[in-house]
Every structure is written in structure tokens, then in C-alpha cells.
Amino acid sequence: MSSIPILPRHMRNTVLPGHAACHGCPIPIGLKVVGAAFGDKVILVVPACCTSVVLGMHPGTAFNGSVVHVAFASAAAVASGISAGLSKRGVRDVQVIAWAGDGGTADIGMASLSGAVERNDDFIYVMYDNEAYMNTGIQRSSATPAGAWTTTTPLGKKEPKKDVAKILIAHGAPYVATASIAYPHDFYSKLKKAAGIRGFKFIYLHAPCPVGWRFDPSLTVNIAKLAVETGMVILYEYYDGGIRLSGPSRPLLDKSKRKPIAEYLKHQGRFRGINEGELRSLESYVDSSWEWVKKFMQ
């Protein structure tokens, strides 16, 4: 791991103590990495999602940067507008980041996201994926994996997860990456790389939620790590027409190096009711994701 970059800023200078996240919440972990990358020179555009609460209640705040809270479907559109306004005014020293959950991205925000990508508007979009509507009480989203219990899929979700990174690659976005809160240095490098590219940049951030996934809050990072180690989440970057696997996922191209998916599932109450057939379909989802990645690898 000699390539670990030195972080230029203290993460706690941006994410302040006193945020309103649940125990073991992955969101402050992700935001601290954003803070490490950009300090207070960041404008977060946050639609309705857990982060709307996590950042704290007016008149307090736990974020020492700028935040624009916006209507649910609109993170990408508002970020497009801010980016255009800043460029017209010649302001170039601040990074605009749309910071949205899976519901605000894969479901209600999909059209505005697609529009911003197609226009190649200049900002970073981070989809932090806790795989359901956690803020409203664990309802399924299109990013919920098959087999997972949620309050609106009490028998487990039947349909496979929507892969937004794949959709954005199909849009021809200049930069698409996947990251995990278990690998902050990897996420950091991807943010920095994205910031250096003009146009639309998308980073998927896998973010396990102890409350919604029913695991012990001390295990958030372990679960996130297992998602990568089992190959459920593949860390990569896509640019110049090709996918490059990132460090933690690189050895896992060899299927025998991946941990069994059951290792990932067994800590999570949401998969308690999963049967053999559903496990098989999860496994085949993972296999097909890897096959797809291989096709675009450079």
C-alpha cells in the first residue's frame, strides 16, 4: 500500500463533532474524506436523504463548508446551475459536489442526473449507496439488492439491484468510479482525480447502514470491506473508454480470490430470510457484474 497519498487537510476540520448521524453511520466517514480532499472549498448539493439530517439542525451545523439542501429529484440540476453560475462569475476555487443517496439518484433523481451527464455539466456527483430509503425508515429502492428485507419488501426484494455506474458509463460520462467507505484513500484519490477533469464526474460510494441492514454499528467498515472482498462491490475507475480496477478489487478478478458471498450476508439481518435460490441469484448477479467489467477493462 505504498501508494497511499498523504491527506493535506485534517478531516475533522470539515466534518465537525456533533453531527446527527446514527451510531455506525457511513455518511460522516464519506464526508470526512470529502473534507480531506477539499476542506471548506466545497459546495455540497444535498437532496432529501439521510445527509439532510446528519448535517444537523438549524441554526447549528456539523459541516464546515457550504451546503445547499434541495428538493428530492434535483441534486444534479441544481449542481448544474451552481456550476454554470460560478463559471459565469469566474469562480474556480470551489468544488461543486452533488451528494445524494441511492433513492435520490437511482430512483427519483435519475432523470435530472441523466440530463446533467448528457450535457456534461462540470461537477462531481457522489451517490452514497445505503441500498434503501433509510431516512424514511428502510423502504426498498431500485438499488436495494435482491433478497434484502426492507419495510416495503417484507419477504425480500425480488428484483436485482440497479447498477447506476453502469448506466452512467453508457451515457459516455468522462469519469465514472466506484468507491467504498471502507477504503477512504481510494475514495480520496478518486475525488481528487475527478476534480481535475472538466465535465461530469460520477462516483458511486458503497455505504453500509447498520440500522437498515440490521448489523452491529461497530461493524460498518468490516461489512463495507466484505462487500469488496466478496466481489459484491467492484472498485474501479472508468475513463478514456476503459475500466481500470482499483487496488482492493484488482486481485479479485480471479474468482478464487473472492470470499464467499455468504460471508458478507451472514452479518446482516436484512438477508436473514434469504433462501438457497436467492443466494444463487445474488451470486450470478456478482458473476455477471464481473463479466461486464472484464469486457471494458484496459
Partner: peptide, 27 residues
């Protein structure tokens, strides 16, 4: 001398106009 954001819906039209206005632009 203006930027035209050719959005994909009216919901985004006003959202984008709002974003730019927030950032100091006449929108």
C-alpha cells in the same frame, strides 16, 4: 454572454436556474 442549460425537464429548468441564481448569476 450567458450560459444556456438545456435541461431535460421543467423541474430541472427551475432547479438549475435556482442553482445559478444562488451562485450569484442573474437567471
Amino acid at each position: 454572454d450567458a450560459v444556456m442549460i438545456r435541461v431535460e425537464s421543467e423541474h430541472s429548468a427551475l432547479a438549475a436556474a435556482y442553482g445559478s441564481a444562488l451562485a450569484g448569476a442573474r437567471a
